[in-house]
Amino acid sequence: MLTINNLTKKYGDIKAVDNLSLEIKPGEIYGFIGPNGAGKTTTLKSVTGILDFDEGEIFIDGLSIKDAPLECKKKFAYIPDNPDLYGYMKGSAYLNFVADIFGISTEKRNTLIEKYAGLFELTDDLATPISAYSHGMKQKLAIISAWIHDPKLIIMDEPFVGLDPKASHTVKEMMREVCDNGGAIFFSTHVLEVAEKLCDKIAIIKEGKLIRSGTMEEVRGDESLENVFLELA
């Protein structure tokens, strides 16, 4: 679903990501962990086409993000670490905007908005301008907008920040549902307990370099993920 080959991204002379390679297959929840400034967000932004990169290749469902950016973008959804959304729009207007871009029919969007807004208890706030939303509400709206077009791959940067426990639980269930239906999830997190329980595979990045990756068992062995992380990072 997502193949990253020898990705290198520089800011001036500094390598934010250094020769990183990963492969995320359909059905996998892939966690991406590392200390602050390790290069997680830069990697995710390179995958989504927000940032251009210097070396390497990124393929989404077999298509290169550099050569066929629009086709790639039709296949994934991205949720950034800070959900800055259009404050001048109402929540429902934003969801409709995203649905329009992906060509989602009125019937389908009605069903999905009802389903996910209901799950996040956001239905009553959909007619409110986003500028009046709290961080958590914006995060919920960003998540709904990602799920509204049924993407094959969902890329999330720290998706649980700002969410209440109930919403976090809902997101985890939604993530598993995507993978059960043949999709894939690639997300960064600092919450190691979540990564340990939720992820099928995990990658640890430090100073732009991949220092360990694989299934949860391969990465942590008999230790806890926290201990492995503290040793490596």
Partner: peptide, 26 residues
């Protein structure tokens, strides 16, 4: 800031170009 009720009747299909234009207008 009184809450207005969400009405799914407001949801309607637009082409991407129209959606982008509506966004700029808003």
């Amino acid at each position: 800031a009184k809450k207005k009720a969400y009405d799914k009747e407001d949801n309607s299909f637009k082409k991407p170009e129209s959606a982008l234009f509506a966004k700029e207008s808003k």
